[in-house]
Amino acid sequence: MKHSISIFWRLKDNHYKIYVTKCGDCGRVAPLKRLKCPYCGSRNVEHIESRGFGELINYTVSYYRTEGSEQYLPRVVGLVKLDEGPVIIGEITDVDLNELSIGTRVEAVLRKYSSEDPNGLIYYGLKFIPVIKK
């Protein structure tokens, strides 16, 4: 996968951390950093860094091939319900396809997103693995 160096760098904080937005009025928690609560529209919101733990609530397996991506295939893309409440999309790594099961506790870890070009930049960001400390 080819990335734009400048876009990736500008979004670095969102690749290295998981943020959620907590509404000071309705109390609900939404994924990502938001200026307004998506549920009640309030601007009384707080950005919180997620601890990065959650539960796998569904997943799909992608065999989609792009040049140079073969080393990482197949990719498992999961829906993770964070302990803070919101559901986010994330890649699940270090898993065998026959072992994958909904309900697995997962934790966010820093991994390579892509590094195919030996002369290019290595793109790092968070993925999920089954929790190490049970």
Partner: peptide
């Protein structure tokens, strides 16, 4: 180390 791991990712953990 897995395909998506290196010195940086392991050192981070």
């Amino acid at each position: 180390a897995g395909a998506d791991e290196d010195t940086v990712t392991m050192g981070w953990y």
